[in-house]
Design a protein around this nucleic acid. Structure first.
Lengths: 333, 333
DNA sequence: GATTTACTTGAAAACGTTTTCAATTTGCTG
DNA sequence: CAGCAAATTGAAAACGTTTTCAAGTAAATC
């Protein structure tokens, strides 16, 4: 049934050398006489030999595979990061095992463990809340893990992010400077520290610098979905908000469409700023003003960082902050 | 450095049984006395033993990993399929190695081979053009491969799709019935058979049934991007088209926005129908009328089909067509 | 209670590589 | 051309499981 599997031993026999020598030429080891190398290469070609990566992994304890845990690839934000990760992974000869966690802590722990049992050489984790249990699992393994676009309060794990506090603070400040006295903060679950600790902090700081008292009626905790966004207009009006800082693009698109459907003009009657800078910002009308973040790069840099960790190379800074920007489009004045 | 790796041998010793017995309990083999099972389980717990999937893969020749080749996860269409694939993969205890091919034939062949060298148990392939070279590679391996949302002219490989011909024909017929004499067909690369052979065929058939002569000036071959869509309005007007059947949602969104920006009202002055039914159809204004296809399910069914193939189970139909629908939203009258 | 039959177990051989260590060649030096 | 260092090679032991086969043990039959 599978007699077509050619092994290193077959090649060795056919080329009348030892397995060791074949292994050397396959791995590009320099210590082999050119003539021998050619002979082996010819046989490899002739037999159509392909090294078995599993056996290789067992013998060398390296699988050239990394695990990627992501809440949901279907979300453009994470899809962009994943793409960045895969591209540099490919560049460094790694493959990625991609798993969706739905931000479910149990699932995260479960897939983390299957990933580890599969002996991945490293893991890049994207997730919004790192529970104690999860952090413990992280600590238990010696497999390097880096967080991408995901904050960890403790800062103990390597990570790649932007400065969420500063970005939100700056955008909210702009909103206030433009005359908005009541700026809503519409976010995903607050128990996710990226929202509850970082972005909210930026929001509060902006308020404070402007001498505006914090009013928790202006904070809307949602599930980050488009649908929810479309339903938010009445509540937003009820608290007299004239602008909103939103933490997710789909959510923001929902809000904008909800406003339009209620004949509230964006940006004239209501301004909205979003956070993730996915291509959705440009597709929606009016185009959404946004914090810009180098999504692809966050993934790419995270993966690059991981390669260093996997090779025990020194890393200058294990918590890297990439630059963000502010892009004015049409949903703000 | 890695003395923390507990092997099956360690638990065997600690539980005073043989490796074989430990292997049996780990694999849920029924032939082990309950008392022994418990003893082993306790030791496993105590030692925090985790089976090494690589060794397992080598010994059993099964990796419980499948390869997924996708043009670009960043495209919502493929992201949705990928999500469906991952979910049922998880359900059947598989993991997926996800690779982006950018629809580049060389890359596709390359990743196919690395996937095979990694001994994946199966592959689900998404790609728009199956070159002869690629088809040959497919044939060379005994690893099962199924196509998801991707047509193969030869129909030799298992696949899961919708009936693209019929869907397009039906939508174009509707457009014509509503009085559009000049319906444009805006698509991605025509050398991709899903466009050049299937969808275009549906378009032509609809024309024919309505007694309208085919005019290739109405066919716009593009690169499927949003950006390109935004630029298409002048060309569309130049050929007096009053409606367009578009093969990609981002492309369609671009066209619609391009129209709006030129003060052409959709759907009053120009109707557009799109094909992929991603969530973008609902986010854009006006919402896009679309062929609906069960994206998630295409992925899910493809993966389910693959599990059967991997287990040598009989499959009733290897080329499955899932039902499509027509969803009228706001971009058509 | 002697056989048979059905369960449980263990020993050891795969699985296909990498890697260590020693042996063998080869190439230089003087 | 002896003597030694450097370059090439090969033998065999890992790597951590699964799996086959035979042996041992408990249960069932008459």
């Amino acid at each position: 049934m599978d007699k077509q599997t050619v092994t290193i031993y077959d090649v060795a026999r056919e080329a009348s050398v030892s397995m060791a020598t074949v292994s050397r030429v396959v791995n590009g080891n320099a210590n082999v006489k050119p003539a021998t190398r050619k002979k082996v290469l010819d046989v490899i070609e002739k037999l159509d030999y392909r090294p078995n990566a599993v056996a290789r992994g067992l013998a060398s304890k390296k699988t050239t595979t990394v695990g990627v845990i992501v809440p949901d690839v279907t979300n453009m934000y994470f899809a962009s990061l994943a793409r960045g990760i895969d591209d540099v992974a490919t560049m460094y000869k790694y493959n990625i095992i991609l798993t969706n966690s739905d931000s479910n802590s149990e699932k995260e722990i479960k897939v983390l463990n299957t990933l580890l049992s599969k002996q991945v050489d490293g893991i890049v984790f994207m997730g919004n809340e790192i529970t104690d249990k999860l952090r413990e699992e992280f600590k238990r393994t010696k497999t390097p893990i880096v967080l991408a676009g995901s904050v960890d309060d403790e800062g103990t794990d390597p990570s790649v992010n932007i400065d969420y506090v500063a970005a939100v603070q700056e955008e909210v400040k702009n909103l206030i400077d433009r005359g908005n006295k009541r700026v809503a903060f519409v976010c995903g679950p607050l128990n996710q520290s990226i929202n509850g600790k970082y972005r909210l902090k930026g929001y509060k700081q902006a308020l404070k610098s402007a001498g505006i008292p914090y009013d928790d009626k202006l904070v809307f905790e949602t599930d980050d979905t488009y649908k929810t966004g479309t339903l938010l207009q009445p509540a937003l009006m009820a608290v007299n908000a004239t602008a909103a800082m939103v933490t997710d693009d789909e959510l923001a698109a929902g809000i904008m469409n909800g406003m339009s459907d209620a004949d509230i003009s964006v940006p004239n009657d209501f301004e909205v700023i979003t956070s993730n800078d996915t291509k959705l910002t440009e597709m929606v009308r009016p185009k959404m003003s946004s914090i810009t973040q180098p999504l692809y790069d966050i993934g790419a840099v995270a993966m690059r960082l991981l390669t260093k960790l996997m090779n025990n190379e020194p890393v200058e800074e294990k918590n890297v902050l990439l630059p963000y920007g502010l892009m004015k489009r049409e949903s703000t004045k």
